[in-house]
Every structure is written in structure tokens, then in C-alpha cells.
């Protein structure tokens, strides 16, 4: 018997690929939670990671970088001007139908 799949949709959950019990050093909220201004974690409240390996909620680190005295440095290690990029994510599971 031949089965033709006419339509399928994939469903997955994802997590930040970082240490599980880490909190954002600025707001001290867990990375699975949101920064103080957001309601929902995830896509709308992303994380940013410096070259130095330190992670923060995007909105928290932006607030800091806006300060002149921050000089673009990571608040954790004071290393100069790391380019900030989102950390990698991993998919937990995927269901296809």
C-alpha cells in the first residue's frame, strides 16, 4: 500500500542552550522567565550573548548599553564591546503529523 502524505505540520518546543539554573545578572530573573518589561518568555523576550559567553535578557542588556558609562562593555567581565548575538537554542522534541 502506498501512502501519500498530503499535508504535515511540525510542532516543537525549544530552549536556550545555556546552563539551566542561570539567571540574568541584571534583573536576576531566570532565563526561562522574562525581563521586567515583558509578559511572555521566548520569541518576544530574547536573550543576547557576548563573545565572552555571558548571557542577558536582550531588553536588560540594551538598557545597560544605552548608558554612556557602560562603554559597550559586558557588565559581568567588563570586556570591551562584545558583539551581542542570541545564544543557540535546541529543540526538545518534534511531532509530525
Amino acid at each position: 500500500m502506498r501512502v501519500t502524505i498530503k499535508k504535515w505540520s511540525a510542532v516543537a518546543t525549544w530552549q536556550w542552550d545555556i546552563s539551566e539554573d542561570d539567571v540574568c545578572g541584571i534583573c536576576q530573573v531566570h532565563f526561562d522567565g522574562t525581563c521586567p518589561t515583558c509578559k511572555y518568555p521566548g520569541d518576544d523576550c530574547s536573550l543576547l550573548s557576548g563573545k565572552c559567553g555571558h548571557n542577558f535578557h536582550m531588553h536588560c542588556i540594551m538598557e545597560w548599553i544605552k548608558q554612556e558609562s557602560a562603554k559597550g562593555q559586558c557588565p559581568m567581565c567588563r570586556q570591551s564591546k562584545p558583539p551581542w548575538t542570541p545564544p543557540t537554542v535546541y529543540l526538545d522534541y518534534m511531532l509530525t503529523m
Binding site: 534583573c27 536576576q28 530573573v29 525581563c35 521586567p36 518589561t37 531588553h59 536588560c60 538598557e63
Partner: peptide, 17 residues
């Protein structure tokens, strides 16, 4: 982020203490 930021952060610090 201005309003409420310090309040929440201080609650976090108190909880940890």
C-alpha cells in the same frame, strides 16, 4: 523599563537573602 524595574529586582534580592 524604568518604572517597576528596581522594585522587581529588589524583591529578587530580598527573596535570595
Amino acid at each position: 523599563m524604568s518604572a517597576g524595574m528596581s522594585g522587581r529586582r529588589l524583591m529578587k534580592e530580598l527573596g535570595k537573602i
